[in-house]
Structure formats: C-alpha cells, structure tokens
Design a binder for these strands. Sequence first.
DNA 1: ATGTATCCTAGCGTTTTGCTGGGTTATAAT
DNA 2: ATTATAACCCAGCAAAACGCTAGGATACAT
Lengths: 154, 154
Amino acid sequence: MRLSTKGRYAVTAMLDLTLNGGDGPVTLAEISETQGISLSYLEQLFAGLRGKQLVRGVRGPGGGYYLARPADEISIADIICAVDEWVEFTRCSGNKDCHGGNKCLTHNLWDELSRDIYTFLSDISLADLVARGGEIQAKCKKEAEKAGAKTKAA
Amino acid sequence: MRLSTKGRYAVTAMLDLTLNGGDGPVTLAEISETQGISLSYLEQLFAGLRGKQLVRGVRGPGGGYYLARPADEISIADIICAVDEWVEFTRCSGNKDCHGGNKCLTHNLWDELSRDIYTFLSDISLADLVARGGEIQAKCKKEAEKAGAKTKAA
DNA sequence: ATGTATCCTAGCGTTTTGCTGGGTTATAAT
DNA sequence: ATTATAACCCAGCAAAACGCTAGGATACAT
C-alpha cells in the first residue's frame, strides 16, 4: 500500500464529485477552483480513475465527470490504487535468498501489514466517509454562514 | 498520514530489531546485510527513530541498537511518523476561504479519514505483528530448511 | 592505542510531484 | 455550419523526496 499527497488529491476530488454530483456531471474546472488543484493535474488523476472504471467523463458543453458506480461501491482503496499505482514490494516471495529465514520473515510481516491497511481502506466507501462526516458538514455550513454572509450560496 | 517505501524500510528494520534484539544490541551493519538496505540510509532512518525515543544506540564495539521500549508499546504509527514526518494537509482549518463550505467539508472529511488510518496503525504494535506472523515464521523456516540445508542456522 | 560502532554532514543521481503549455477530439448550443 | 465547451492527450520542467556514496567525528571495549 502506498499513501501520498497524490492519493489525497484523488480522494478529495472524488469526495467533491460525490457531494456535487447530484445534479449532472461536474467539470474538472469546478473541482480545480473549489479544491485548489491545478486543472492539468486533475486531468492526470482522472485519467487513472477513468482507467479503473471509477468515473465516467462526458465531453462537450454541459459535460464533466460523474461516478461510474454508486458512492457506496467505491472504496478509498480503489481510488488510491487507481492513481498511486500499486508497487509490489517483496522480491523474496519464493523464499529464495532468505538469510536464515529472517529476511523473508520480515518481508512477510510487512506484506501482512500492507494487506491489513489495504483491507481497512477497502472497507471504507465514499458514501461511508460522507455519511460519517454529516455532523462536520452541518457544523461547517453553520460556521461558514456565521463567518461570512457574503460567500456565494452553494 | 503518509505511507511510502521510507516507512516500509523503517518498519522492516524495527521488525528485524524486535526479532533479533534478544541477545544484546543489533548493529546497523547486520540489518543492512540482512534486509538489503544501505548502511547510511539506515543511519538516517535511525536518527529519526532515536529522536522519537523509539530506539537507543550504544556506541563502540559490541554496540548497536535496541528498542527503547518493549515491543508491545511501539506502534506502527510511531515508527512511520518518526521517519516520514507528519505533514499537515488542511490549510482551511479555521473555516476561512471556504467555497460555500464545500472545500472545508472535503478537507475535514480527508482529515477524518487520515485520523482513522492513524488510529488503525496506532493499534498495531511491533509485538502484535510478530505474534500475528507466528504461523508465517514457522512456515518460512520450514520451507527455508527444505529449500536449502546449507543456509546458516539463525 | 586500536578497532568498532554510533553519530553527523554534504552531496548526487534518480524518481515522484504538481504544474505550465501546448494540442486534439467530441458534443451542445448558436 | 460554426462556435464554444469540455474531456482527452502529451511533452516538458522546477521542486521535492528517495536512496545512496563518501567522508568524517565521537564514544567505548579491548
């Protein structure tokens, strides 16, 4: 498993898509504006997401992206693996060149952990995250209204 | 949270230390040899681990490193944070420049997820990993013996 | 005094990151 | 048909991170 800022950008963009995808497709320009990610970088990320069948793009005016599957069928692990392509770590899978078993052992332990992390992230869907953040959403909206009434309504 | 090959190296080295630290301190040269990590890179990693009070080094002949705390009191999150220093992501924590709440919302959702991952890794100790890999250890040793009887005994 | 090992620092090639800047296609609106 | 809009595609580029080499300094056991 691998987790970097690239994965963060992808998850953030997918969250934006989940939240705003209610009425028609969302353009990358909008996500770029809202989330502060460059348009071209978003395009790269979405190339990966599209390749893994997580999003679908429609071209032309009124176009944009929408989730290819319902939000509860897209896991965080799916998103991260789509953009941060999975690099296999262990080279000693076949037990060759094991230094008395110790090297192989630690590698296997890491693989075990790696699998655990993957499983953990596979059990969290976009819908889960949004649902879990319900109170955050309410609180955030309230404070945003309180802070500046001039901000454009969503 | 951040998870890269750097963190993998650190966890691997700490696992090695846990498994071989029974009889006296373990030298970085040994870990370098066994795990295939360059000595100097290990030194850098252990500088971080030492700074976070996870290991203790003794100098001179017969020296090396040993765990500063028992293996069940050192979590994977501790190790990763020690070498892969924690970068804070959200810049809009104070709800300023929220685009109608949406930017802030997605950032908070990411933070939520990030905290979840951290908590998950905090609950796994070195001792847990080693214990969980018990069957792997047995299997690995057996296969290693079967494969090549010439390999030096641990 | 000597060797061993941690400790420390500077630098270097490579990869990854996130971006700018150019294009081309497909489609909806005019 | 023309035009504007958006997805698509690709080359390159500065900055950072990765993993390493190299050379030293310091502490300690023999």
